[in-house]
């Protein structure tokens, strides 16, 4: 029996009906057409489906759709302000921190959550902050550099 859920997604009010066993990932992709949220494993091991739920980084495949009731969900689709990209998005392109790009939305979410807590992370803090996200193309080198550079821009340094 579907349940009606009322929530906020990327700053906009959103309502959807979902099954009680449906994941937030499936709701975002299949009911709200936010396919920037990717499924890489469905078991919380790859981080491709990372979103920010009430300020906290989560794997949306491990959250139920009904748990979004009354809460705030942020996805990669909400990062840019119109044509103006978030500094992390800009730096990911500039540093070639993406090759295939399928892990990129998850990394951007994880990096955003990290920098909101820690605006000036060391390389080691970045590496551990992003350790829940798998990338198979880059070897992470350019991702770490992009996050370092974006952090610098965001600090106004």
């Amino acid at each position: 029996m579907a349940v009606l859920v009322s929530t906020t997604v990327n700053g906009d009010h959103a309502e959807f009906a979902c099954e009680p066993n449906e994941t937030l990932l499936d709701v975002l992709r299949n009911r709200l057409a936010l396919t920037g949220v990717k499924e890489g494993c469905g078991t919380g091991d790859c981080g491709s489906c990372s979103v920010i739920l009430d300020g906290r980084l989560v794997c949306s495949c491990l959250v139920l759709g009904i748990e979004a009731e009354g809460r705030k969900v942020e996805t990669v689709e909400g990062m840019a302000h119109g044509a103006e990209l978030h500094p992390l998005q800009t730096k990911f392109i500039e540093h070639a921190a993406l090759q295939c790009g399928v892990c990129t939305p998850g990394f951007l979410m994880a990096a955003k959550a990290l920098l909101e807590k820690n605006p000036d992370p060391s390389e080691e803090e970045i590496r551990f902050g992003l350790a829940g996200n798998l990338c198979r193309c880059t070897g992470y080198d350019k991702i770490v550099r992009a996050v370092q550079d974006a952090a610098k821009v965001m600090r106004g340094a």
Binding site: F92, I93, L98, G101, V102, P105
Partner: peptide, 19 residues
């Protein structure tokens, strides 16, 4: 130069197999 598919891939617009 910057890649032509960059913006689509950092904004979630790029369409992959399951999208």
């Amino acid at each position: 130069p910057l890649r032509p598919d960059g913006i689509d891939k950092v904004t979630g617009r790029a369409k992959y197999g399951a999208d």
